[in-house]
Computed example of a mutant assay.
Amino acid sequence: MADLFSDFWWLMFPIGAMALGAFRSWMDYRARREVVEALRDLAAKGQEPPAALLAQLQR
């Protein structure tokens, strides 16, 4: 088992980068979902959404 780690220690860098990318994508998805839920709530109340909330969807 020690030989396996000493031979492939460098793999922790690309695997870490992939994990970080997946986590960032998941956090972006959650943020976008929260904005859409807020817009849905405002639409149900018949209110105009603030420009800052709409700007978050543009990025």
Results as ranks from 00 to 15, higher is better:
2 A>P: 05
2 A>C: 13
3 D>H: 13
3 D>C: 02
5 F>L: 08
6 S>A: 08
7 D>W: 04
8 F>H: 09
8 F>D: 06
8 F>C: 04
9 W>L: 09
10 W>K: 02
11 L>C: 08
11 L>W: 03
11 L>N: 07
12 M>F: 09
13 F>W: 07
13 F>G: 02
16 G>E: 00
16 G>A: 06
17 A>P: 00
17 A>D: 03
17 A>F: 15
18 M>D: 02
19 A>D: 01
19 A>M: 14
19 A>H: 00
20 L>C: 04
20 L>Q: 01
20 L>G: 09
20 L>I: 08
21 G>M: 07
21 G>C: 07
21 G>Y: 04
22 A>D: 10
22 A>Q: 08
22 A>E: 07
23 F>A: 10
25 S>V: 15
26 W>P: 00
26 W>L: 07
27 M>N: 13
27 M>G: 14
27 M>D: 05
27 M>P: 04
28 D>N: 15
29 Y>I: 10
29 Y>P: 02
30 R>L: 06
30 R>E: 13
30 R>A: 11
32 R>Q: 08
32 R>G: 04
32 R>Y: 04
33 R>T: 11
33 R>A: 08
33 R>E: 09
34 E>N: 10
34 E>C: 07
35 V>T: 12
35 V>Q: 00
36 V>T: 10
36 V>F: 06
36 V>G: 01
37 E>V: 12
38 A>Y: 09
39 L>A: 12
40 R>W: 05
40 R>F: 13
40 R>A: 10
40 R>C: 07
40 R>S: 11
41 D>Y: 13
45 K>G: 02
46 G>P: 02
47 Q>T: 11
48 E>T: 15
48 E>S: 10
49 P>F: 02
52 A>Y: 04
53 L>M: 03
53 L>V: 03
53 L>P: 07
54 L>V: 14
54 L>K: 15
55 A>D: 14
56 Q>L: 13
56 Q>S: 09
57 L>C: 09
57 L>P: 05
57 L>F: 04
58 Q>N: 09
58 Q>M: 14
59 R>D: 14
59 R>A: 13
